[in-house]
Structure formats: structure tokens, C-alpha cells
Amino acid sequence: MTDKLTFPLVIHANPTKSEQFLSLFLIAFIFIPFSYGIFTSQGFYCLSLPFGFFGMMTFNHFTDYKFTTLKIIQKNKFICFSEHEVEIWEDEEYVSYNWNDLENIKINIIAFKGKWKDEDGKYHGIENYISFAFQDVTHKHLFYIDTPKEFNLLWDYFEKIILPKLYVSKRIKDESIIIPLLDYTELQKFKTKYNINRYTDFIHFN
């Protein structure tokens, strides 16, 4: 295992009112005529689809692509996970948070880029996040995972190194009276036996 695992932060830009209006207009322009053309078997209305996507490309161009993954995935801001702390980096400066100083920790390691989500298409890898409270202030950071290798490495790192230590400190949230009597390995076997999702239910702390 490496000492620190580093991932780019994901920051969604806040649209202006005019950008919100244009994006809603484009969505309506694409799907309303297209749906009408499908239901009425009038192919002319289906032309809204290619014209609408051209409009979306134009919209992205004039907004400097700030709503696309090209800009959402940060190039100079990162999150680093280690055994003892979480670090948030921007350029050459960072803020560190010791795991033992955090409350209401929630970690969702959801997907890497291109991972299938059943029949709903693929993930973009930007859906992962961690949230926690530090000195009564809640922080939430989304981060990007590019490859299956990075995804599995981070997952194993949490499961084998970080989470057992937090479990020993009895900071796990929403466990029953019986479960806290189990050690970490026994807890995972217990959740497997009773069909409790061990990759979501065991990562909530207070």
C-alpha cells in the first residue's frame, strides 16, 4: 500500500440565471419535439435531436466547457487519503484533517470512469465523495477516480487500513447493540451473512 492515495477534486460550476435558462431551453428543444415525432410517427420533429445536440456543443463552447468533465475535474486541486488524515490540496498548499478529529464521516466510493451502472449507461468517475464535520463545520468533497485499478486500490485501502482503525475507536454510526461487540472482520462476515451491504452500511461514522 502507498502512504497516500491522491485523486483530483471534482467541482461543479454554478450556472448563471441565463445559463440555467439556456440549458433548460435546449433540453426542452431536444426532447419535446423528438417525443412528439416518435408518438405521432412524424420524422420531421425528430430533427430536433441533432439540432439540439449541436446547440449543446455551441453552449459548451461559449461557456468555456465549464459544465463538462474537462473543467469539472480539477487539475490543481486534489484530495489525499492516508492512514491518519485527509488532505485537501490546492496548488502547493493544503489543509489536513486528522481522522480522529472528524465527526459524521461519510465515504461513498461509487465508481471509476466507464463503470457500467446496470442498464442506465456508464459512470463518469466523478460521483465519489467524502463528507465530514470538523469543528461544527460540514465539508463535502467530490473526487474523480479514473481507472478500475485506482478504484480497487482505494477500496482496499479503506477496508484494510482506515476503516478498521475507525471501527476500533467505536466511531461507527448506526450500528446495533450486538454489532459493536464484533471486531472488524467479524462485522464484515455478519453483514455478508444477513445480506447487509458491507460497502455502504459500514462507512458511516459519528
Rank of each mutant, 00 (worst) to 15 (best):
K191G: 10
I161G: 00
H141R: 14
E119F: 15
I30W: 01
F202E: 04
S176T: 10
E92Q: 13
T147F: 09
N104K: 07
F134M: 10
F21K: 09
K17C: 09
H84I: 09
E186K: 12
N60I: 05
L9P: 10
M56C: 09
F151D: 05
H139I: 04
D118Q: 13
V86S: 00
E92L: 13
Y36H: 03
I32W: 03
K160A: 00
T147R: 07
Y123Q: 08
E186R: 09
N108T: 14
I145T: 02
N76M: 06
L9S: 09
Y157D: 02
K165Q: 14
I162G: 04
H139G: 05
E103F: 06
E85R: 06
A111S: 15
E83D: 13
M1R: 00
F134T: 01
T185V: 13
F205L: 13
L5E: 01
N14V: 11
I72M: 07
T192I: 12
I109L: 15
I172V: 13
K66I: 03
I110E: 12
G43L: 03
N76H: 12
H12F: 14
I105S: 01
T16N: 08
D183S: 05
P50L: 06
I177M: 03
T192W: 10
V10S: 08
G121Q: 06
I38M: 11
R198H: 07
E103G: 10
W89S: 00
E127L: 11
H61Y: 12
K17G: 07
E127K: 09
L70Q: 05
H124N: 11
D3L: 12
I177H: 03
E186A: 14
F54D: 02
H139W: 10
